[in-house]
Amino acid sequence: MIVHDKTLLQNKYLREEAKALQDAGFISEEHYSNIKKDLADFKSNQNWFLRVAFLLLGSFLYSSICGFIALSILQVTGEHFEVLFFVFALIGLAGTEFFARQNYFGHGLDDAFIIGFQICLAATIGIYTSGNEFLIAIVVTTSAAFCYLRYLHRSMLLLACVAATASIFYGILNLGTEIAIILPFVSMVFALLLFLLWNKKLQHTSTFYKFDLNLIRYYSYLLFYLSGNYLVVRELSVVLLQQAINHGQDIPFAWFFYIFTFIIPVGYIYQALQQKNKIILWLGFAALAFSIYSIRFYYALLPLELALTFGGLFLFGVTLVLIKKLQNQTTGITFKPDRFSNSTPFQAAEIIVSTQVGGTQSNQQTTDSPVEFGGGGYSGGGASGEF
């Protein structure tokens, strides 16, 4: 199923592991350079600026090919342009296959064609079904899953998850307003099924797919929280279900969504601390901040200025207490830097603070004795012969 060369795929993941070890200080830069020389790699761009630049270049190439084909087809079919988007989708798929067989992986040119394929395919289904959202979502889910399984394009895995969620949403909405009221609970169940699929089957696979499947886990976490967030449920009830919520009224099961909005972020943070998973930890903090915003969106107990001030003081106090408590721990939950994470911002901050402290001390010494360097008056290399 995978079109890419298996040896190059294995080399790619070995190089990534070696890079992580080099960043953590377990192997030297010279050792990492030797590993890179010994392992052949795909034609790819690790620099995101270059990748975006080649994505734009690939988009121009893709549109140029489509434009030429369109002019040729319109001369034959006249004004029947409905078939054009299907042809454009085939061009995108053919271009993706070509670049994959030429060992392009995450280069930018291949990104343009695989994304163009999905857009043109969705447009084709929309034209022939008069904009049926449910059918569009079903087709995009299938095509995105196929593209991920064949080309290992991580964005296609995310697109498949989002499109599958949209399929469930539109499928429930098509059943009528009476059934659509259970949409948040159906979405929660779908998120749980995604997590169970990852936990029971996907994370234990020994194929090349296992390197990207954590995306399904984190997507299920995010979807589960948003499915029960009070603000999301209430606003979607107004927009999708056309429910008029007057002053003094509330949505059905409002008490459940109030509790859910705050319990789930706390649960995420607790689980992240237990498993030492920083992604879930940041997700939990982001969800907690959005929960506070969700309630404040409807019930503003304090003016915005006071709320931000008290919130900042509270966070500062909690952070200070945690730093004091964890700074000397070397195991478990600790404030020590993670050798496998990019600590460049912390290193930069440390350098800035050290420079400021050192600069202040240097200025004070210069003020007291501006020319006392050594026996000769210029850095110690003078008549006394001492340094």
Rank of each mutant, 00 (worst) to 15 (best):
I114Q: 03
Q243I: 10
A164H: 00
I168A: 07
C147S: 15
G25V: 11
L14A: 11
L313C: 06
I216D: 04
G382S: 04
G359S: 12
I216N: 00
L121M: 12
L109D: 04
A94G: 14
L50E: 10
A144N: 02
H31P: 03
I35F: 02
T77Y: 14
L240H: 11
A24M: 07
H247A: 14
V233Q: 04
C147K: 01
F105C: 00
N199T: 08
A244C: 10
S206M: 12
L175C: 13
T261N: 01
L236P: 03
F105H: 07
F346G: 13
T165S: 05
L197E: 12
L283I: 05
L159G: 00
G312D: 07
G176A: 06
H247I: 15
Y128G: 03
P337C: 09
L183I: 09
G58N: 05
A18R: 02
G131S: 04
L326Q: 07
I168K: 03
R296F: 03
S369H: 11
I323T: 11
T77L: 14
I333P: 02
H31L: 12
Y219T: 04
G116A: 13
T366P: 00
N132V: 07
L196Q: 06
A163H: 03
T344S: 13
K36W: 02
F42E: 06
F105N: 03
G375Y: 08
G380Q: 09
G381Q: 13
Q22F: 05
T165I: 00
D38T: 09
L308I: 11
I168S: 02
A94Q: 13
A286C: 14
F257Q: 02
G380N: 04
F195R: 06
F60C: 13
S227E: 01
K201H: 14
W282T: 01
Q242A: 13
A123K: 09
E305G: 04
F60N: 03
T355Y: 15
L121K: 01
L326K: 06
L21P: 02
F98R: 05
C120W: 13
C120L: 12
T207G: 11
L302Q: 15
T355F: 14
G67S: 09
G332D: 08
S354H: 10
Y225K: 04
G248D: 01
A254Q: 08
Y219D: 00
I119A: 08
K324P: 04
L121F: 14
A89P: 03
T330S: 12
G374Q: 06
